[in-house]
Design a protein around this nucleic acid. Structure first.
Lengths: 252, 252
DNA sequence: GCAAAAGTGTTAACTGTACACCCATGA
DNA sequence: TCATGGGTGTACAGTTAACACTTTTGC
């Protein structure tokens, strides 16, 4: 649910929404982008939600998710994957703050709404919240510190996390969370954050390098108070070749 | 879309349906349950669809899928898993026969409908189509012989197949397609059919037995013109233990 | 020279894969 | 006695997992 005015809600399908779990990474921990209803209730996580909106009858589900992402981040070409549909009759409007929010943003706040959830991976520094529609209302929260959200969004977040964990083991999608140039240690840390467990440094490096999907840029970090690291970039060509041959497992 | 009369469609949500890809196995090949619109067009696969229906606003998505399954099979406790949501604006009504069908079954045949797809595994011999609502209209088709379906149901079938293939490698859900007592050869054949490739007999047996989720019933086949096989059953208790410890891979 | 992270190889255990013959039954 | 599918073990190759020290930089 975004915070557009009620006016043009007539064109929106009252029964179907999309919600986007947008993940970011600051080289230290995993974040999720949340919006705040700014409700009259005391500040709490129950006032926060992942961004989403009702769909237009003229767009498909992916397009609706892309629209929501664009409104928030003004980034195109974002990695996006469907999590699935959530449709409990009482999934929204269980709590008082949910109902207050719905009344503020929905032409038909009582309507039955099923939502199609997506997750998305973005480079946090490129993230540029549009002050107009989301001033003071959008921000990053460390995934580990989120314990509750509005509506059924906590369940959606957990489902997104699980799918990300499953997927990152068999496809190198993590690059979408890193800067274009990154070090193996940063990639290593990213995998540890997503999978929430330690991975052996030497084994990690060997496996990821053996996939031949990284290009060593022969550049070094500068200004770091320790041995500077080599910088790498993701090699999409080699990855496409690899995908066609098919590979099953990074083995983490 | 099932073939109920239009009468009680008012209670149905006009924008959201569920569709069920129901798989069966006859110890020789994999089947999918299709219904026939009985349209005036020449008989073709484009007239067939997987069963589905609009949802009621009082039920959740799983319940809607279970309702569709119950109407068709009168079996409870069916293995059921969500595939995902399909929502192209023109996903239904592309072909003339699609539109004819929609007009026959929908109170609002022009409505935008997104569908939540499920797949389900059933024991074919237990399948008992209800003559009342599906007389002559429901039947099993070998998955390998399906090349086209009404609406976007061919895409949904393929997505269901892919998910089944992914899932059967990491969870022993195949038992839902076999009789309660089965032989290792039958299980072996099932895996080969689903994955569409040959699997080494000795390696298959070793792996599946090492999971300790089968109970040898100390019973033999009777009346077979060859060495009779041991019969096994699925051991749910051991499986639950195993699931909790977590296992990643059957390794096929 | 010290703190901090980068970078590097080897071994042992395990897992997957390939492969061929004898067995029990009904006809 | 023959045809049919059931049932079994081993050896090799590849993969994973565990583990510790040296290097380069900024301060």
């Amino acid at each position: 649910m975004n915070l557009q005015s009620k006016k043009n809600k007539k064109e929106l399908n009252p029964n179907v929404s999309v919600d986007c779990v947008i993940f970011g990474f600051d080289l230290d921990q995993l974040y999720v982008l949340l919006i705040d209803s700014g409700s009259t209730e005391a500040f709490s996580q129950a006032r926060m939600a992942v961004p989403g909106d009702l769909i237009f009858d003229t767009e498909n589900l992916d397009e609706a998710a892309i629209r929501v992402l664009r409104e928030l981040t003004s980034i195109e070409n974002i990695y996006l994957e469907q999590i699935g549909a959530f449709g409990d009759p009482n999934r929204i409007g269980k709590k008082d703050s949910d109902r207050e929010w719905l009344e503020a943003i929905r032409a038909q706040p009582e309507a039955r709404v099923i939502t199609v959830a997506y997750y998305s991976l973005v480079r946090m520094p490129n993230f540029n919240p549009k002050a107009s529609s989301f001033a003071k209302s959008a921000g990053w929260a460390p995934v580990k510190e989120v314990f509750d959200l509005a509506f059924d969004h906590y369940d959606i977040l957990q489902a997104g996390l699980e799918q990300l964990r499953r997927k990152i083991k068999i496809q190198p999608i993590g690059f979408n969370l890193l800067p274009e140039k990154f070090t193996l240690s940063q990639l290593h840390k990213l995998y540890e954050c997503i999978l929430d467990k330690e991975l052996d440094k030497r084994n990690f490096r060997r496996k990821i390098l053996n996939l031949n999907i990284l290009t060593n840029l022969d550049e070094k970090q500068i200004g770091v108070p320790h041995k500077p690291s080599q910088l790498f970039e993701f090699n999409e060509e080699n990855y496409k070749k690899l995908s066609k041959e098919g590979f099953d497992n990074f083995g983490f």
